[in-house]
Each structure stands twice: as C-alpha cells, then as structure tokens.
Design a protein around this nucleic acid. Structure first.
Lengths: 123, 123
DNA sequence: ACCTATCTACTACATTTGTAGAAATGAAAA
DNA sequence: TTTTCATTTCTACAAATGTAGTAGATAGGT
C-alpha cells in the first residue's frame, strides 16, 4: 500500500488516538499546520478508498474511523526504498546516520547495544 | 530541495558514477527498470531546473552532468519526515527496526557499537 | 415538528510526477 | 558537403497529491 505524505500524517495521528472522527483528526493536525476541515476529510476518504482505514461506528452524525494497517507494516514496506534512495542501499551508513543525528538517552543506547549484541550472537 | 522518487533514483546513479551523460544514466537505469531514454532525459532536465544537477561539459553532442547536492544533504533533509511519518518520530524504534531488518556483518556491528559507545560518552 | 449547526458527499482545480512521442539540431560519417 | 543518426528540446498527458468549496443530509436542541 502506497500512501502520500499527507495521508501518512493522518495515519500517524490515527494510530496514536484511534478510533476517532475526522473532526478530531482535523483538530490534532491543526496544531501543527493550518488546514481546512474538508481537506482532512478528503484525505480520510482517500485512505478509506485505499483500504487503510475503515468505519468503526458513528457518534452523532460523525463517522468514527479506525486503521486497517499498522505502522510496522507500512514502515516495512517503505524502508527499503528509503534506504536505497537516500543511502544508496547502505544500511550501515543509514543506521550510523541516525545514531549520530538523533537524540538518544542512556536507556535507548543500552537497548540498541543489546540488539547489536544479539545480532552478533546470531551469526 | 524536494525530489521525487524517480528523481532520487537518478541522483543515486549520478552520485555513483558522476560525471556522466543522460545516455549513461539511462543505460544504468535500464538494468533495473524498463524505461525510455526520453523519460530519463526528462527527469535529468527537471533535476537541472531544480538545481540538483548541472552541466559539466560536452562529449560530442551529449551533455555531461554532475550533481550539485550531495547525498548527505538530501538525506539530512528527508530523515526527520521519514522518521515522523513511519515511526511516529521515535528514533529509537527506527534504529531498532533497521538493526533487526538489515544484513550487517561483524565489521558493521563493531562500527555501530563504537558509535553507540561514543554517543554514551558524550553525555 | 422545525430549525440550525455540523458533518458527509461530491466536485473542482492547480501542481507534481511518471511516462514518452515529435521535432529540431548538430556531430560525425561517407 | 550532404546525409544520417544520436541527442536535445519541446510538448503532451494521465494519475496522484494537496487543497478546499458547495450542496445536501441529519442529529439534536427548542
């Protein structure tokens, strides 16, 4: 399933607060971006057509939506293309990039170290 | 600078074999995808308009192109959006995802471990 | 039962993207 | 020098994307 950036932004919000209505999604989105309610509703409609969300009931006249795909499914699909296009397919430099750029607390670091250790063991 | 997927595919090839002509890019691309020469040339033209590549000379009637932006600049720009949209902004789970999914040899693992160690030290 | 505010459904439109043909051009061959 | 063939330029077009207005329906208040 291929979703656009805006569609993913909406999915992100839905994953975090599902189930919810288009109005609620609009409200959350408005916190980071000026956008009309109908715009958000259009995106939700497209997500429904694509099968990424579905109706899960009503609340007054409002439709309650839930997601039909989960984040990890979509990120699994998107990951290889991203790695290829931005890091020439070199996973090591991609991971290195993120380790260097991102904020990580000691817990995070310990967790990632343990993952690497497992990875090494598994050889 | 915002580039499309296809544009990035071409940039990727250019970065790897620069400087080169549109015909050479077309030839490389053809190895992974059936596409007309003029299609590739159109993409190169658009990249030129966007300022991502520039003419670096001629070879007979062919124009030689070089890149004007580098991979790391573009990946720096693309990274936050990707992380937000596919991992809800959680860098730890993104890095974990890649460590788990990707092939890494012992060297890679050692290198990444040292990066994590540095990161910890820097605190 | 009626009004009204709100929500949905439908339509619209500019821009970007993927895709490629047609026409013009110019370097190289004959 | 004339022809030819690769290249460039220009044009085109459908689909996807971001963006939103309008009209129609309806739940809830009075």
């Amino acid at each position: 399933m291929k979703l656009s950036e805006f569609e993913l932004d909406v999915m992100q919000l839905l994953w975090q607060h599902e189930p919810c209505t288009a109005a609620q999604l609009h409200e959350r989105l408005s916190q980071s971006k000026k956008v009309a309610y109908t715009t958000v509703k259009t995106i939700v409609d497209r997500l429904e057509q694509k099968g990424a969300v579905a109706r899960a009931g009503q609340q007054g006249k409002s439709i309650i939506y839930r997601s039909c795909v989960d984040q990890s499914t979509l990120s699994d699909q998107a990951t290889p293309g991203f790695m290829q296009r931005f890091f020439g397919g070199d996973s090591r430099s991609l991971i290195a990039h993120f380790i260097k750029q991102e904020e990580l607390n000691e817990d995070d670091i310990a967790y990632l170290q343990s993952l690497l250790k497992d990875k090494k063991q598994a050889k």
